[in-house]
């Protein structure tokens, strides 16, 4: 660079902040939301990996973890099961009426077998986990953050990622299988109630033979895996929003509302992604040759 071009050292370079041009602002309007979403997703992912790395250290706090398991079973399981039963009622209703429309009433079991395992159970679990467990964690951990309890914990030498986040995560993983199994059973109970007792259009034998012929073990395992991944993702996202809450009671409320949006989005994307991943477009049904 030439010497003459350089500004004198005594004269600070004054550069007035330039206003972005109209085109730049137009472009930023599209780019900024995408960038914000990506940044947030990255932060949630970093938080989630950190929580998973801390999991081995959680065993030290197994008493706290068992307390969380107990809270989940007493507080949230009943709501999840009630919603499973309700969705079973809806699914049974539609299975009879739709298959009647196609002139295949006796095949109502196809719908009632595919509906819970492939879509409805994981979907309903994810929604209700987001609403009941996830929002509850945001409220709980967020108010701890606001009341500076988490900072106090850190200053006492207690790792909050382990004591608060890790214990809850492990508790959710442990509790998911029993809740899933009972939920699936209640879903079937709802379907049986509607198909065989409320509408009662097809015989018990016809429904049972078709329903159980179309229900296979691997699909139930896939369904559980789908539920588990969505469950963990939603719980991690909500705990992230609780852990980073700020701004008093309003902040906690806003974080709760935000976590709900993220839970809804995660539910949808993961649900459909796993449907393709596990079952794809091949029906894998025992019909024909």
């Amino acid at each position: 660079m030439e010497a003459g071009v350089q500004p004198s050292p005594y004269e600070p370079r004054r550069r007035r902040p330039t206003r972005p041009s109209g085109l730049e602002r137009f472009a930023n309007g599209f780019v900024d939301p995408v960038r914000n979403i990506l940044v947030e997703a990255g932060q949630i992912a970093a938080f989630g990996f950190r929580a998973i790395i801390e999991l081995p250290g959680v065993l030290r706090y197994s008493a706290e973890m068992l307390r969380q398991v107990a809270l989940l079973i007493t507080g949230s399981a009943l709501v999840l099961w009630a919603m499973q039963f309700t969705f079973g009622l809806t699914c049974g209703n539609e299975s009879v009426y739709v298959l009647r429309g196609y002139g295949a009433s006796s095949y109502a079991g196809v719908f009632s077998a595919l509906c819970p395992i492939r879509e409805a159970t994981p979907f309903m679990f994810a929604y209700m986990v987001g609403a009941k467990i996830g929002c509850g964690y945001v409220a709980e951990i967020g108010s701890m953050r606001i009341n500076e309890e988490i900072d106090a914990m850190e200053s006492l030498g207690l790792n909050p990622m382990r004591y608060l986040i890790g214990t809850r995560l492990l508790a959710n993983i442990l509790v998911s299988l029993p809740i899933f199994v009972v939920g699936l059973v209640l879903f079937y109970v709802g379907e049986v109630f509607v198909i065989l007792f409320q509408i009662g259009e097809i015989s018990r034998g016809a429904w049972e033979s078709v329903h159980w012929a179309f229900t296979d073990g691997p699909s139930i395992i896939f369904s559980y895996l789908k539920t588990l991944v969505m469950w963990i993702a939603i719980v991690i996202a909500s705990m992230y929003y609780g852990y980073t809450a700020r701004g008093g009671p309003v902040g906690v409320g806003e974080a709760t509302a935000r976590s709900m949006v993220v839970a809804l989005m995660l539910t949808m994307v993961l649900n459909e992604g796993f449907t393709f991943f596990f079952w794809g477009v091949d029906p894998k049904l025992p019909v024909g040759g």
Partner: peptide, 22 residues
């Protein structure tokens, strides 16, 4: 306080969802 607001939002979502489905 702050915990109360979070709890209220949580309960509101759960009750709304249950009501919608039933």
């Amino acid at each position: 306080g702050a915990a109360g607001v979070g709890r209220a939002v949580n309960q509101a979502v759960v009750v709304s969802f249950c009501a919608v489905y039933v």
